[in-house]
Nucleic acid binder design. Structure first.
Lengths: 211, 211
DNA sequence: ACCTGAACACCGTTCAAGT
DNA sequence: ACCTGAACACCGTTCAAGT
């Protein structure tokens, strides 16, 4: 009833094609004319169904956020459960790098975190945090997770960071710590780094006395 | 000798005007034709001096990174000194929000952290961390700081996060913690949040035994 | 209600031509 | 060596017109 089998153009069909284009070739590849060509219609039909490019991107972003779905914590201690939520969100975001970039560019980065927020509040309560302290905990984890994914995505996209860390840490810069120079000279294991950082943050915030 | 007083177009003059445009009206406002108009020359002159738009952006990004300058730690304990470095970098990045966005979009996010990296290594050593553990510490702080600034900048740019946290936490969603609902319903104090998060991460990583 | 082509005002870039 | 205008191939968007 909604998406006919052959050619009846619909709002959903337009959004599907647009999402496919972005997912495959990035947001830059989403042009009204290219999209129309992909759909086999005139450019102006898109305007009738979803409006201009801004409206199209808004709808795409809305869709992406909705598609993230629920996140169920796993593990026995609050710390483990929070880390599992963080890992789950990270995986979801990494699955749609281009769409996440779109959401970010359009200023809705925070909304990507909403599905995880309720779960996090529960864990904060389970760990004994309440009120403003619990809110601060949730926010800190939120910024940490989303921020990490943004930085991570960025590194993977940039093949050569010209005078990057690689040649900066050419073994003699580090004074007397060759192991450190070696570690900083090659790209980080971002998953391991994510685990370490989130774990450290959560451990610290769940155990600290009132600030 | 470099930038003549009146009209001699030079590479630096072009970059200056471009940086000004981006700083005032964002990267979207940087068009070759608009820039030429601002400079009072033909569009094609820009091509002769700095090349196409990509080359122009590359040069701008290079400039931004170079302008970040050195960061001197202050404070007595390693933890305080690391936090001071993080605060310093955050301030520098927040001073040039549009240019930072440019650097990020062009995949050079990490290079923005290089000026702080050496300082951080010193503090890691001072705190007794060495080798791979010290490198992991530096990386964790780096991702935390840059990521936080990216998320922060994003929130400030988005005026209305439609069904955002505000109405999600309408006091009854939070079970029995009205103070938490109230806290999550209004925008966070990002500076305070930054301090708390970085402090917690650093404390945890500087004190933990070998993983 | 749905779809169309023509037209407008913008882009970045190239190139042959000037001095 | 430096600067120019004309031209090309793209954009997003509007609008009057079709069915």
């Amino acid at each position: 009833m909604t998406t006919g089998a052959k050619s009846a153009l619909s709002r959903d069909a337009v959004l599907d094609a647009a999402a496919g284009l972005v997912k495959r070739h990035g947001p830059g590849a989403l042009t009204m004319r290219g999209l129309a060509a992909e759909l086999g219609t005139a450019v102006t039909s898109i305007y009738w169904h979803v409006g201009g490019r801004e409206a199209l991107l808004d709808a795409l972003v809305e869709r992406t956020v909705a598609d993230l779905g629920e996140i169920r914590p796993s593990g026995r201690t609050p710390e483990r459960r929070v880390v599992s939520v963080a890992l789950g969100l990270r995986r979801r975001l990494r699955d749609r790098p281009h769409l996440v970039a779109l959401v970010h560019e359009r200023g809705l980065t925070e909304r990507m975190f909403l599905p995880a927020q309720r779960a996090l509040v529960r864990e904060a309560h389970a760990a004994g945090l309440r009120g403003a302290r619990a809110a601060e905990f949730v926010r800190a984890v939120q910024f940490q997770v989303v921020g990490h994914v943004l930085v991570e995505r960025n590194r993977e996209r940039a093949p050569a960071q010209h005078p990057g860390e690689e040649e900066l840490w050419g073994a003699e810069t580090a004074g007397d710590d060759p192991a450190l120079a070696r570690a900083l000279a090659c790209p980080p294991d971002t998953e391991q780094l994510f685990l370490t950082a989130v774990g450290a943050l959560v451990r610290s915030l769940l155990s600290a006395p009132g600030a």
